[in-house]
Design a protein around this nucleic acid. Structure first.
Lengths: 207, 207
DNA sequence: GAACGTTTCAAACGATTGTATGAATTCTTC
DNA sequence: GAAGAATTCATACAATCGTTTGAAACGTTC
């Protein structure tokens, strides 16, 4: 576990890990600089403030995830020709990149999921602006694709079902390893992803 | 808006409101005592510590909600006789009490939802113990009812779909007024509840 | 109304927070 | 290898944090 990377990346890495573990406010500047083995002033020097660091940590993961989602949507639409892609493919384009990114993040991938949950529930102005900028265009694309795939569903219904799906995805990511009784059969992530896609697709298709 | 109630209740009331607005750690003891117009030492005197206050605020809402859920489940099973209640009735027993409680809570009901989200993502030891104690028996009852209603679904599948439903419910409660584009047709809470039940029921029935 | 337990009060505690400073060091460019 | 920019460093700052304290005020009971 050598870490020859630069100061900025080291800060981002363990900031993500600690934020995910303990929450944004329960992690001090000093916790991060100690963990990253950099000087106390490094965060303010490289990022400006703690809030800016939070936004940077969050942005580093959210941007590629949403890019991957758009790319997956593009690919699905392309391979479907002039027809609409299957509902499952549209939902997979939304769900799978989030999971894949969460795997790249430290601590087996739970750190980013937790961080995302926190950024949703206690957003700073910086994070809120980032959320809007990142998700508005994505949601428009998702809406359009879903409306085409489910022509007899109103746009309002699609909006609500998308919100439900979003919630299911993130609660899953957030508590993947938690609140799981012993009797639950072990399943790998791919299986769990399939289960979610199946569930959401049926939810969208409800009369 | 007269508040002739006692110190303890006044503290609980605005603590709930402030925690919901800003997050557990962004609200200081002084914010609460100022808002409740009580002395600074009142929180430590009446509750012991800030963490204990958080648990008390949370407990005051969670306990009645889960009692109402169990009661609704009882009622549904009773009225169904020796048959299984309809899937929608089981899900409604889970969903509706949470919504109803959230309406009683300050700020049009969003405060409790936000508080719940926070308690899920950054639980103190006290809150974590409370969560376990409150949700384990409820989930067992829900599992049993759902297995009876969906006999060809494995218990593991029921667990995961229940988790997805839980996520959809709480993300909805947490962001009810947020991230809603202007074009979404206004719907009252009852309609939204129905939409969620429809979505979740279809998700559970998926092959 | 005296004695009691309960609650409220103003004030202070030590610890920790995020940020700022200016000097020391390293890196880059000529 | 000297000049200048970029980075790291130890240290200090003011503010805020949760908690404690001991006295004052209150309510109850005999």
């Amino acid at each position: 576990m050598t870490e020859p990377i630069d100061t900025k990346s080291r800060i981002l890495d363990i900031a993500e890990e600690l934020f995910g573990e303990r929450g944004l406010d329960r992690v001090s500047i000093r916790d991060i600089t100690d963990g990253a083995k950099v000087n106390l002033a490094a965060i303010n020097y490289h990022f400006g403030s703690k809030d800016d660091l939070v936004a940077a940590v969050f942005e580093r993961r959210v941007v590629p995830v949403n890019e991957a989602r758009l790319a997956a949507l593009d690919a699905a639409e392309k391979s479907a020709g002039n027809k609409s892609p299957k509902l499952e493919a549209i939902l997979a384009a939304f769900i799978r990149p989030a999971l894949q990114c969460s795997l790249k993040s430290p601590k087996g991938g739970t750190a980013f999921s937790k961080l995302f949950g926190r950024c949703l529930s206690e957003p700073s102005p910086q994070v809120e602006a980032l959320l809007k900028k990142q998700f508005e265009p994505l949601m428009e694309r998702m809406d359009a694709a879903l409306m085409k795939a489910l022509p007899n569903l109103s746009r309002t219904d699609i909006f609500w079902r998308m919100k439900f799906t979003f919630g299911a995805l993130h609660h899953w990511l957030l508590t993947r390893e938690k609140f799981v009784p012993a009797w639950v059969e072990a399943t790998d992530l791919e299986e769990q992803t399939q289960k979610l896609i199946t569930y959401a697709a049926a939810g969208f298709r409800a009369a």
